[in-house]
């Protein structure tokens, strides 16, 4: 009798419970985001100005054909790739170093760990205008310091030059995102049992060997997931670019979400704006699936 109930319960746990556990998440996601996303996809086949809701014209694939032939989209795509790869790579590198430093035992560690969040918690509007100010070509502190160190011979308008505007915004974004990586990787490192380290030390391994053979493989799943999430996040967050250069000068720091925003809200062409965003979404889906597939060989993620 008891065992019968147990087997029934076991079946329930195996077949129903996993879906039940997912239910709240899916209720939220489908209830809130599904409609807006479907609507965006729907809009991308139409010509639509939100000020004139009555004129809503089906244009078929016109927007998609147009976007693939749009030279500005190609520029934005190129910038987006530089933006995503550069930002995420350096955030990861900085975050890894930060996590290793914060993992050590030292006086005032809790305090330092708290302070490490600062770039992350500072509202982006302030980060943007502060970096604009620091990078200013006439009275910015960065120019002043570089000049005093003799690294430059005259003030450089970092945000006003074609070649430096995107890298300048990237530096601000890298600074902002490093603590995110640092905290995630720190958490992963803290989850590694001390016994493993002790055993390695007894075997006479040096710090570098320990990192390579114990820490790295064990934090790898977190590295992979965090990097992937950061790629998606970085691809779509344009707040710093918007305030710091608004894509300029010219199109030199224009990235795809910003182009989509300009098209939708400044040109009032929501159809085309949606198309641009959806195309980036499609690219992202492809890249992320490839990324996961490549990495799944080594470690099963899902």
């Amino acid at each position: 009798m008891l065992s019968e109930r147990n087997s029934y319960f076991n079946k329930w746990e195996k077949r129903v419970l996993p879906f039940l556990l997912l239910l709240p998440a899916f209720t939220l996601i489908i209830g809130i985001v599904a409609y807006p996303i479907i609507r965006a996809i729907y809009l991308s086949f139409h010509s639509f100005n939100p000020l004139k809701p009555s004129i809503f014209k089906f244009v078929g694939l016109e927007n998609y054909i147009r976007v693939l032939n749009d030279p500005i989209f190609i520029i934005a795509l190129k910038n987006s790739i530089i933006w995503i790869v550069g930002v995420v790579f350096f955030q990861f590198l900085g975050g890894l170093l930060g996590a290793i430093i914060l993992k050590q035992n030292f006086k005032g560690r809790a305090f330092v760990r708290g302070l490490s969040l600062i770039p992350w918690v500072t509202p982006s509007v302030l980060i943007a205008i502060m970096w604009i100010w620091m990078l200013d070509g006439n009275y910015g502190i960065i120019n002043d310091i570089l000049l005093k160190l003799g690294l430059i011979s005259r003030y450089i308008p970092w945000l006003a030059q074609k070649d430096t505007s995107l890298p300048a915004v990237m530096i601000a974004d890298i600074w902002r995102g490093i603590p995110f990586f640092a905290i995630m990787l720190l958490a992963a490192m803290e989850a590694i049992p001390d016994e493993l380290y002790e055993a390695a030390r007894i075997d006479g391994a040096n710090s570098f060997m320990i990192f390579l053979n114990i820490t790295w493989p064990l934090i790898l799943p977190t590295v992979i997931i965090t990097t992937m999430l950061r790629i998606i996040w970085t691809a779509n967050h344009m707040d710093l670019v918007l305030i710091m250069t608004d894509g300029g000068p010219g199109f030199s720091s224009l990235i795809i979400p910003l182009m989509s925003y300009h098209t939708a809200y400044k040109q009032l062409n929501f159809g085309y704006g949606s198309t641009i965003a959806i195309l980036q979404g499609v690219f992202l889906v492809i890249i992320i699936s490839l990324y996961l597939r490549l990495l799944r060989k080594g470690e099963s993620i899902y």
Binding site: I132, D136, N138, Y155, P157, L159, A160, Q161
Partner: peptide
Amino acid sequence: PPSAPTDAYAQVLG
């Protein structure tokens, strides 16, 4: 100033 292409109100006034 060389920064003119992206100078906005705050920069010009400053």
